[in-house]
Design a protein around this nucleic acid. Structure first.
Length: 563
RNA sequence: UGGGGUAUAGCCAAGUGGUAAGGCAGCGGGUUUUGAUCCCGCCAUUCCCAAGUUCGAACCUUGGUACCCCAGCCA
């Protein structure tokens, strides 16, 4: 039984099941989620999964989703990142509720809650060094020891915490710790540091603070302040959930309903990196052309590559949300892009490796204008002109002097159809001193425009072409995966797994004339080749530069390669 | 016996005691002026392993095994 109703397209996953139960039980009446990136890098495909999850849930349950920058570590953050993140979320097609939020909006209140903890005897200023704190923390199998500063009075702690705030301690000389349990089996509960000294200008709060709250203290409180009902994060925070709950249990903030944290597994995509730290290294060390290099699995890179928001959303829908570790195959993503672009991309002809073809029986000064649909299955996308002349370009791969029956393109003495045009027969070819074919001479059959050969013979092969006189010379960037191995993130030295052939620049491709004014933002299908889009940085009307988005599926090439 | 998690096809992933969805990949066939698209068909007698409970188990119980995460004043 097939059911294509929209309801069936809404994903089901364990988080949505929890929400269904919470709604049914009356625990919550309205769902609020949040997408909480730290502005310390550009968003990548893994973030797209989280964005689709959080904003998707809000949309489907008629709730809301906040965009909140988790900006508690000013030394790693920058407004360049907040700007790019906002742009990426919007581009993906989502809108956050109200204004953009920042954890730093809550620094005053956070400070107040820290004081509350101190007053309850649940936090203390520790003057152990970072190294000493690590020693005292114990190991995975051995319990930790109490800091000698653990039993200071609330009054003393308050005074010391104010001193921290007022710049009275150098960095590393004091920190505020929650007093929990140094022998807990959850390492994160062994008196976690919740405030540290950092004489660092903050991109939002400037020089107002020299102490900054830690993630574990900040995130849960920020969620509660914003009335988040379901705080969704990735698996590595599962232990931290105990601290998340502990903090909210011990402060006076009573939101309508206490938020709960749920964890899902992060996305791993074959041949890609989904680590901001490593992506930043590629950018900083010049291995790529910026965060938006089309080979990067960043949202901005994929945008520049020609991926569509719809294809990324569909990808996130298809991969699902679970707690299982996973590595998704590249083909899953590629298929989503092809599915979308196949329906929406205007078609065009572009010859990537030009080979001259002269149609000897076509008058030298004659020029015809052929018409071609912009989409084979969607006439609403209109048509375009295709100038046809005696001299055209075809692709080198589409001509062979001799070939077996499998080869359906142009062979000496055989016929082939010029896409949207005539049938031609190859009569002879010219070669250079290296034996490389430089020109093919053909005869065309005037009666075959939109018709079979006069004798009724069907021509199997169809090849693309452009009029030499009207062709627009262009640069085309071809891409392969940036890495040679399926899981570069797991490599001991990921830089050594970089694919040196990840970029191939074709500097004299020939485009059909209608592509002359092509603007970034539209992805075209170059027929028989793949999807390509104008490069947003380098393409111009004088010098078009196109990036390969993804090739067409190619069963012939695959079969040939398999031989 | 530190603790927290996860095991269903090559890769994702439904499934929640009633007899293994779906997608991607792959394989076969049809249509086609894109070797594309589209269409049709095939692709887990078995759910990490082993015992047990039950008329009936991927789902429950017990015992194993494998893998991931945690010892930042990062998030």
């Amino acid at each position: 039984m097939e059911d294509n109703s929209p309801e069936k397209n809404i994903p089901t996953n364990f988080i949505r099941q929890i929400i269904d139960e919470d709604l049914a039980s009356g625990k919550f009446s309205c769902i609020k989620t949040r997408f909480p990136p730290e502005p310390n890098g550009y968003l990548h495909i893994g973030h797209a999964k989280s964005i689709c999850l959080n904003f998707g849930i809000a949309a489907d349950y008629k709730g809301t989703c906040n965009l909140r920058f988790d900006d508690t570590n000013p030394s790693k953050e920058d407004t360049e990142y907040v700007d790019s993140i906002k742009e990426d979320v919007k581009w993906l097609g989502f809108s956050w509720d109200g204004d953009v939020r920042y954890s730093s909006d809550y620094f005053d209140r956070l400070y107040g809650y820290a004081v509350e903890l101190i007053n309850q005897g649940l936090a203390y200023v520790d003057e152990l060094s970072a190294d000493e704190i690590r020693e005292y923390r114990g190991t995975l199998t051995a319990p930790g020891r109490n800091s000698p500063y653990r039993d200071r009075t609330p009054e003393e702690n308050l005074r010391l915490f104010e001193k921290m705030r007022d710049g009275g301690f150098e960095e590393g000389k004091a920190c505020l710790r929650a007093k929990i349990d140094m022998s807990s089996s959850f390492i994160c509960m062994r008196d976690p540091v919740i405030y540290r000294v950092k004489f660092q200008k903050h991109h939002q709060t400037g020089d107002k603070w020299c102490i900054y709250p830690m993630y574990d203290f900040t995130h849960c409180i920020s969620d509660a302040i914003e009335g988040i009902t379901h705080s969704i994060c990735t698996l590595e925070f599962q232990d931290n959930r105990r601290l998340y709950d502990w903090v909210l249990e011990h402060i006076s903030l009573n939101s309508p309903a206490r938020p709960h944290q749920y964890e899902f597994s992060r996305l791993n995509l074959e041949y890609c990196l989904t680590s901001k730290r490593k992506l930043k290294l590629l950018v900083d060390e010049g291995y790529v052309d910026g965060w938006d290099d089309p080979r990067m699995a960043t949202i901005s890179g994929m945008r520049r590559r020609g991926f569509t928001p719809a294809s990324l959303r569909e990808f996130c829908r298809r991969i699902g949300v679970t707690k299982q570790e996973n590595v998704v195959e590249m083909s899953a993503l590629e298929n989503c892009v092809r599915d979308d672009l196949n329906n929406t991309a205007p078609r065009a002809m572009a010859v990537l490796h030009p080979l001259r073809m002269i149609i000897d029986n076509y008058p030298e000064d004659k020029e015809e204008v052929l018409r071609a649909p912009n989409h084979p299955l969607n006439s609403q996308m209109g048509e375009r002109d295709l100038p046809f002349t005696r001299e055209i370009y075809i692709d080198e791969a589409d001509f062979r002097e001799t070939a077996n029956k499998q080869y359906k393109r142009l062979v000496l003495g055989k016929n082939v159809r010029l896409r949207y045009g005539y049938v031609v027969r190859a009569d002879s070819c010219e070669k250079d001193e290296n034996g490389r074919v430089t020109c093919v001479h053909c005869t065309y059959f005037p009666e075959t425009l939109g018709a079979d050969m006069p004798d009724g013979q069907k021509v199997k092969g169809v090849i693309h072409w452009v009029s030499a006189k009207h062709a627009v010379k262009a640069t085309v960037n071809l891409y392969e995966c940036l890495f040679n191995v399926p899981n570069p993130g797991a490599a001991e030295d990921f830089l050594s797994t970089i694919n040196r052939n990840s970029l191939t620049v074709i500097d004299s491709a020939m485009l059909e004339s209608s592509l002359k004014g092509a603007k970034p933002g539209v992805t075209y299908q170059f027929e028989r080749e793949g999807y390509f889009c104008p490069d947003s940085r380098h393409s111009s009307e004088d010098h078009p530069v196109f990036n390969l988005t993804v090739t067409l599926r190619d069963s012939f090439g695959k079969a040939e390669a398999g031989k």
